[in-house]
Design a protein around this nucleic acid. Structure first.
Length: 301
DNA sequence: AGTTGTCAAGCTAGT
DNA sequence: ACTAGCTTGACAACT
């Protein structure tokens, strides 16, 4: 079981998701920004290796405006050496990588223009992972999209668009249940017709579900991942006390996490902690799991 | 130096 | 028909 945190490390003193305003775009600004982001990504990977955090989500800002028409530079060629080096480091330590394009990627949009832009965005995410030499277990996670007043049609549009995607995108794409529109059951329906793996988000499931228990949802989503996809990925979070329902916690609620681990016994996968203080909570989670492993008696063969 | 509004992109719910 | 909220970090313009 690998533990990770998304996109940025708050203590390391650099960010791998530095960007700029589109109005300020220039080739040199783009190149220095990407150079700095890749360099910081190496620092983050080093930190994670040293601290036993072997799961990382890389920010979509690593290559700013990568799918925008303004971006005509061949960044994969320019940074070929850096990207290959990062990939080598990741593979040497058997780290798991994910990416999560944001809410504007909508494969089931009604407007073709939006679908096209979304595919372009998935395209660069997958090429980025390809250029680091990542295997099929490095995933790009998205939500289903909008409902547009008719969920069956929205699901059908998703399915038809998915089937037309090139293989280098399909091999990486996974879908995640969201907190308002598409539940685990909806995602499983799409899995049945497409084979796409379902990434389970425990917090979204708590906000919006069809009555399944956590264990049932874990079991059902886990078996959507083929061997080549790697172990199932999972987004874990809990409610920030006193805040709006659906607001992610500032810091890990270690009792809630313990309870989650107990409830998920038998489930095996990699956990992404979607918690505001990032690596601090991830370190606590790793510590907890280490202690639990050390404290529990070895199972006799 | 610190604070506040804004940022490429879209959907939904509420007015 | 229109707008606020989503959810979020960082940029950029302003004190």
């Amino acid at each position: 079981m690998k533990i990770g945190y998304p996109c940025l490390n708050r203590g390391i003193g650099c960010t791998a998701n530095s960007t700029f305003r589109l109005a300020n775009y220039s080739a040199s600004r783009f190149l220095t920004t990407v150079q700095n982001n890749l360099s910081c990504l190496r620092d983050i990977l080093r930190y994670n290796i040293d601290h036993g955090l072997l799961f990382l989500r890389i920010s979509s800002d690593i290559i700013p405006f990568a799918s925008h028409p303004v971006c005509t530079l061949n960044w994969r060629k320019t940074f070929n050496k850096e990207l290959a080096g990062l990939g080598k480091l990741i593979r040497a330590h058997r780290m798991r990588i994910s990416m999560h394009p944001d809410q504007f990627v909508l494969l089931n949009a009604q407007r073709q223009n939006i679908v096209d832009k979304s595919v372009r965005d998935l395209d660069w995410h997958c090429r980025f992972l390809d250029s680091m030499g990542m295997g099929d277990d490095a995933k790009v996670q998205i939500h289903i999209g909008g409902v547009y007043g008719d969920k069956p049609s929205a699901i059908d549009r998703f399915t038809r668009t998915y089937r037309r995607l090139p293989l280098f995108i399909r091999r990486r794409l996974v879908i995640e249940n969201d907190d308002r529109l598409f539940t685990v059951r909806d995602c499983l329906d799409i899995h049945r017709t497409t084979g796409i793996p379902v990434l389970f988000d425990n917090f979204h499931h708590a906000c919006h579900n069809d009555g399944e228990s956590l264990r049932t949802a874990l079991r059902q989503t886990a078996c959507t991942w083929k061997t080549t996809d790697g172990p199932p990925m999972l987004d874990y979070s809990s409610q920030q006390p006193g805040a709006r329902r659906g607001k992610h916690a500032e810091s890990i609620d270690i009792d809630d996490f313990k309870e989650f681990l107990r409830a998920s016994r038998g489930w095996d996968g990699d956990i992404m902690l979607e918690i505001k203080d990032k690596e601090q909570s991830a370190l606590k989670a790793v510590e907890l799991i280490r202690k639990a492993a050390a404290g529990s008696p070895r199972i006799r063969q």
